[in-house]
Computed example of a mutant assay.
Amino acid sequence: MVDNFMKCKYAWEKFHGAVHSLASEGDLKTRLIRAYVFNITPLNRDNDIPKELLERYDEFVHLMTKVPAQGDEGSVAATVNKMDEIEMERATDLIIGLYDDLCRFMPNHYA
Score class of each variant (00 low, 15 high):
D58I: 10
E59D: 14
M64Q: 01
V19N: 06
F38K: 13
L53V: 08
C103G: 12
K7E: 10
I95Y: 02
H16R: 09
N4G: 14
G26P: 03
N4F: 12
M64S: 01
D100C: 14
F38D: 13
I96G: 05
I40M: 04
A11I: 03
M1G: 15
N44Y: 08
T79C: 07
H20T: 12
L94P: 02
N108K: 14
R45N: 11
Y10W: 12
A77D: 08
R56H: 13
M64G: 03
N44H: 15
I86M: 09
K51E: 15
M64C: 02
D48P: 09
A18V: 02
A18L: 07
L43Y: 03
V2F: 12
R56S: 07
K14T: 06
D100I: 15
N39W: 02
R31V: 05
T30W: 03
A11C: 06
P50N: 07
D101V: 10
L43V: 00
L28I: 10
F60V: 05
H62A: 13
F38M: 13
D93P: 06
L102P: 00
L102W: 02
F60S: 00
A69Q: 09
I49N: 00
I86Y: 11
F60I: 04
E52Y: 10
S24P: 08
L54R: 13
R34D: 09
M83N: 07
I95K: 02
M64T: 04
C8V: 12
K7D: 11
Y10E: 08
V37Q: 04
F15S: 00
A18F: 02
G71H: 06
V61Y: 04
L98P: 01
D3T: 15
E55A: 15
V76D: 00
D93G: 11
K14M: 10
V37Y: 07
G17L: 05
E73N: 10
L22W: 02
Y10A: 06
A35C: 07
Y110S: 05
K7P: 02
Y10F: 12
V61A: 06
D48Y: 03
T41H: 14
E13M: 10
A111V: 13
F15W: 00
K66R: 14
C8Y: 04
T30G: 09
H109A: 14
I49D: 03
M106Q: 03
I95P: 01
T79Y: 00
M1W: 13
N108D: 13
R104Q: 13
D46M: 15
T41L: 14
S21V: 03
A35N: 05
T79M: 01
D72S: 14
I49R: 03
N44I: 12
Q70A: 10
A69S: 12
I96N: 08
A69V: 11
L32I: 02
M88H: 06
R56V: 05
E73P: 09
G71I: 08
H16Y: 11
E25F: 13
D101S: 11
E52T: 09
N47E: 14
A18R: 01
N108H: 11
Y57T: 03
I96Y: 12
E73F: 12
R56T: 05
T30S: 11
A69N: 06
E25V: 08
